[in-house]
């Protein structure tokens, strides 16, 4: 019953799309059939892979940099209560910096290559991972640490078997938010400055008045992000089989 409803709703949405196309015209709403056709074309001529690879590359690079510092800083801060108290408000305030608004500046600094986008993605990733690692470290059950020390765990064992495992749910919560956002940051970055990538593909099509191109690009991007979400969900379920089903870290 519910599944049928879902399928029907999906079909209805498709029908709406087609109807919108007929009412609003080709300039505003591309025809679903043409989008499929275009999708086939860019898959066949290989241009989709080129754009996607470029987007995924800057996403991965920016994400890796942001992730590294986002994990490192909380661990460093964990060593000193005083340092944490001193810089916490500054870090929180710096979150107010509009990351994308840095783009024009970064372009002035680094030119129109990948660097500005990578910096923006790294910046965004950093905050999200920082927050989840930070609250994760605070959330470690102190009694488990005491227990591990008593039974003879050395600092390495403690870090690996208690701290890291305690952090995992927070890490995943952070990852699930950060990774798709890093991808969409890459795409928005490509709206602003690029000569390749999925974002460029969409924005270029818009500037050319190629509505079918815009729609096709958005379909691809949406599918990519949703696919990524799904993958992360699966991975999390696998890695954290030890958790009771209903417990989850809100993000």
């Amino acid at each position: 019953m519910i599944t049928t409803g879902r399928i029907l709703l999906g079909l209805a949405l498709l029908a709406c799309w087609e109807w919108g196309h007929r009412v609003a015209g080709n300039l505003f709403v591309a025809s679903p059939m043409e989008v499929v056709q275009r999708l086939r074309e860019i898959v066949e001529d290989g241009s989709l892979w080129g754009h996607a690879a470029s987007t995924l590359w800057i996403t991965a690079l920016g994400f890796a940099i942001g992730f590294f510092f986002g994990v490192l800083l909380p661990f460093l801060l964990d060593q000193s209560e005083r340092a944490t108290k001193a810089i916490e408000p500054a870090v929180l305030a710096s979150m107010g910096i509009p990351k994308f608004a840095l783009a024009p500046l970064l372009i002035l600094w680094f030119g129109i290559g990948d660097a500005p986008k990578v910096v923006i993605i790294a910046f965004m990733t950093f905050y999200m991972i920082f927050i989840s690692t930070f609250s994760g470290l605070r959330g470690v059950d102190h009694k488990l640490i005491v227990m591990a020390k008593i039974v003879g765990a050395d600092p390495m064992k403690l870090a690996r078997d208690v701290l890291w495992r305690s952090l995992q749910p927070y890490m995943f919560a952070g990852l699930k938010v950060a990774l798709p956002r890093a991808l969409s940051a890459a795409i928005v970055g490509e709206f602003l400055v690029a000569d390749k990538g999925l974002g460029y593909m969409i924005e270029h099509a818009r500037q050319m008045g190629d509505t079918t191109g815009v729609f096709t690009g958005i379909v691809v991007v949406t599918a990519l992000v949703l696919g990524l979400n799904w993958l992360l969900e699966r991975l999390q379920a696998k890695v954290m089989a030890w958790r009771p089903k209903d417990a989850s870290v809100a993000h």
């Binding site: 009694k143 005491v146 039974v151 765990a153 954290m240 030890w242």
Partner: peptide
Amino acid sequence: IGYVFQDDTLLPWRTTIDNVLFPLEAQ
């Protein structure tokens, strides 16, 4: 000196046997 706490302080990500073996592993 061993210590059995008020709460069980089992590591939630380890199975029962791995929890029991944890001190031996650590030592």
